[in-house]
Design a binder for these strands. Structure first.
Lengths: 191, 191
DNA sequence: TGCCCAACAGGACATTTGTCAAAGATCTGA
DNA sequence: TCAGATCTTTGACAAATGTCCTGTTGGGCA
């Protein structure tokens, strides 16, 4: 059997009947985007949290010097949005766009809360996902505190081996907090 | 009326009756620690999430070179623990200790879950706190991506103005991911 | 097909930050 | 109160990283 990717992810945490999963799915909207399409502009509200079914998105911010900083990539089975704008219903300070043609399941905050109330198992799921996300961010911060650019790069390689094949190195550099020139020099040493 | 600090924090998110708050409190244990006391050793399990009533704690890690990296400070009304060890019931890779004599309200994972089941409002509270924590960590990462040591320092000053009075500068440096010499040079320029 | 642009590598130099060593300053407990 | 411990500052130098630039490559699109 070929389970739905969202169902597979949910069932790593809580088990669902077929009826329950259908009910869950009713709260999502299918949305597809083209490569380079901007899904959320800075300054807009963030009506959706996106579950990536297929494709690749990113969250980034432009600083005052016009430099781009990548906060997060979202490959298949990742959730991606501007968390602050989404949860606080404020205007976004970040941008979400697509690095590939992308299909998503999109969830509004209202439907997320409705779903959590109707199906406590889903509240558990969302809570554990958020907790795990928190832990992952802590690890990324520890990486900034204790590692130089080279170590951060190799940490990223082992953490998300598929990513580097799909993303220009300049963006990897931006995610790591270094310039593309610095990253280029690091990878040179390997050879 | 002089509300309990924990109650005050909870009621910023959900309202409680006196009975409900008493019920909440029953799930916590009062624990007090001395300055310099290690509350959680690396390698130990993390049985508690601590709500700091009075005092100051920190979470840190020693890297392989023996250098100390501070992941988080916990002043009054902060929650502090090794999140990964606490939630996953694994052995801690971090250390929690006290920078001042500290009084806490300590919560086990079992009691946290019990409380969440018994009082859905508390589940909402914990969920929102975790979400806000996630957002705060994202901001700290963006700060690492886009700011140099000087900007990160001033960001910290405006974010937690009280902290610098209570913490040695070497620890501030460690939290910012720079050496104490670098931080010392930054603050010199001010004058 | 051929052109163009994004991506990448590399050099030369500037700036930031780290390292090591030492000297002051401040705190703290007996 | 004093003496040791801790914390902070400072200087000289090294290493890491950023900036600006140029040239090459290779793939996508008219």
């Amino acid at each position: 059997m070929n389970a739905h990717p969202l169902r597979k992810q949910i069932e790593e945490i809580v088990k669902l009947t077929d009826e329950e999963f259908d009910f869950v799915l009713e709260h999502f909207q299918k949305k597809a985007f083209k490569k380079h399409q901007i899904v959320l502009h800075e300054g807009d509200y963030a009506p959706f949290d996106f579950f990536v079914v297929k494709g690749l998105m990113r969250v980034s911010r432009l600083d005052s010097d016009g430099k781009e900083h990548i906060l997060q990539f979202g490959m298949e089975n990742w959730w991606i949005t501007d968390a602050e704008a989404f949860h606080h219903k404020t205007k976004s300070t970040l941008m979400v766009d697509c690095l590939e043609d992308t299909q998503t399941l999109s969830l509004t905050l209202e439907n997320k809360e409705k779903l959590s109330r109707a199906l406590p198992k889903m509240q558990t799921f969302f809570f554990k996902k958020t907790t795990n996300g928190y832990i992952a961010l802590q690890k990324r911060i520890l990486c900034f505190l204790s590692s130089n650019a080279n170590d951060r790069y190799h940490n990223l390689l082992t953490l998300y081996p598929g990513l580097i094949q799909r993303v220009p190195k300049a963006m990897i550099a931006s995610y790591l907090g270094v310039t593309r020139e610095t990253l280029s020099r690091l990878t040179k040493i390997e050879a």
